[in-house]
């Protein structure tokens, strides 16, 4: 029942417990192929996410073209945060690596939405299933647009095989 590495699959590295719980809600959506996703333990800060990516997941990406990585981080209102990641993602795996997260902290998003963690994840999954992206374009998530577009092309067919 572990991740099927012989088929395209996605590793998710959440920065913290809040992001881990959002992913948990995403996976609970009926249409998500949970066997195509592996979620590792929260890294404990964005520098740790990057460290784990380089030490543990970069070798996996190089080893298998089926592997994809989504780093789920807090941008902490820092406009340079994405750049910190992008310069550390090697060109040969760049198309299979994604960096997404809240503009500030997920707690701010949760307060604004008035939702619990899992329902936020489930709502994001529902939008992926329907290919209608409203919450994904919330002011706290809109800065992910470029990676969202790439995920729609690359990750969505892996996780939502049976969706339209």
């Amino acid at each position: 029942m572990s991740v099927n590495k012989f088929k395209p699959h996605v590793w998710v590295i959440p920065e913290d417990d809040a992001n881990r719980q959002i992913v948990g809600g995403f996976l609970l959506h009926d249409t998500v192929d949970d066997r195509a996703v592996g979620v590792r333990a929260p890294a404990g800060g964005w520098p740790k996410v990057l460290e784990i990516f380089e030490s543990e997941y970069l070798p996996l990406l190089r080893e298998s073209s089926n592997a994809h990585v989504v780093m789920l981080i807090d941008f902490d209102l820092n406009e340079n945060r994405r750049e910190h990641f992008e310069i550390r993602i090697p060109e040969e795996v760049r198309s299979r690596v994604f960096v997404v997260g809240s503009k500030d902290e997920p707690e701010v998003l949760r307060r604004e939405l008035g939702m619990a963690w899992e329902p936020i994840g489930a709502a994001l999954a529902q939008e992926c299933h329907e290919a209608v992206f409203k919450l994904w374009r919330h002011p706290h998530l809109i800065h992910n647009e470029a990676d969202l577009q790439r995920m729609v092309q690359i990750i969505r067919p892996i996780l939502f095989e049976k969706s339209k």
Binding site: M1, S2, V3, G24, L27, L28, D30, D34, R35, G38, V39
Partner: peptide, 19 residues
């Protein structure tokens, strides 16, 4: 259950209650 199986095992059991 082995370590790599637990997460998905639990997700499948939890998904059972979606409906």
């Amino acid at each position: 259950l082995s370590l790599s199986e637990i997460g998905q095992f639990m997700t499948k059991l939890r998904k059972m209650t979606n409906r």
